[in-house]
Amino acid sequence: MTLTAEQKRQKAQNHYNASLDLCPARQLLEAISSKWVTLVLLALIDGNRRHSELRKIVAGASQKMLTSTLRSLERDGLVARHVTFSVPVRTDYELTPRGRSLLHIIFEMKDWAEDNMDGVATSRVEYDRNQPGFN
């Protein structure tokens, strides 16, 4: 069966519809919207960083979480890992062009969160105050 141009566009659109449960784009959206991903990408803005530097910058991330996040980012092509064979071995991470392309979105979300935190905090207090069982 031959598809029309409109049918082909519809098929392609359905293929990457993040609203669909098993869509690869949805899985990617879930991955890049992680708080650890956001914080690691922000930590790499100024260039290469060693794992130990990232642990200091990304406060609260365990070594396991940071390693897992970096591997995921490397797998998705957002971060590049560079190993220098020395004693001890040195491993540096840096943003790839694809990773850098996310920064403007991350900056907008960060700015929005900082600009709206007072209002959100007020809304949370009001909401909690109106819940049954609130003292």
Rank of each mutant, 00 (worst) to 15 (best):
Thr2Lys: 12
Thr4Ile: 00
Gln7Arg: 03
Lys8Arg: 15
Lys11Trp: 13
Ala12His: 07
Asn14Tyr: 13
Ala18His: 06
Pro24Ile: 03
Gln27Pro: 00
Gln27Glu: 12
Leu29Val: 13
Glu30Pro: 01
Ala31Met: 11
Ser33Lys: 10
Trp36His: 14
Trp36Val: 07
Val37Trp: 01
Val37Ile: 08
Val40Phe: 03
Leu44Gly: 01
Leu44Gln: 02
Gly47Thr: 06
Leu54Met: 01
Leu54Pro: 00
Arg55Gln: 04
Lys56Phe: 07
Ser62Arg: 03
Gln63Met: 02
Gln63Val: 10
Leu66Thr: 01
Leu66Pro: 03
Ser68Cys: 11
Thr69Ala: 03
Leu70Phe: 05
Leu70Gln: 00
Ser72His: 03
Arg75Trp: 09
Arg81Met: 10
Val83Pro: 00
Val83Cys: 06
Thr84Pro: 00
Phe85Gly: 00
Phe85Met: 04
Phe85Trp: 02
Ser86Lys: 09
Val87Asn: 06
Pro88Phe: 05
Val89Lys: 12
Thr91Phe: 01
Glu94Asn: 10
Glu94Cys: 11
Thr96Lys: 11
Leu102Pro: 07
Leu102Arg: 05
His104Tyr: 12
Ile105Val: 14
Ile105Leu: 08
Phe107Arg: 14
Phe107Gly: 05
Met109Glu: 13
Asp115Trp: 05
Met117Asn: 13
Asp118Ile: 04
Asp118Cys: 02
Gly119Ser: 08
Ala121Tyr: 05
Ala121Phe: 10
Arg124His: 14
Glu126Asn: 14
Glu126Leu: 14
Tyr127Thr: 05
Asp128Glu: 14
Arg129Pro: 02
Pro132Val: 02
Phe134Trp: 15
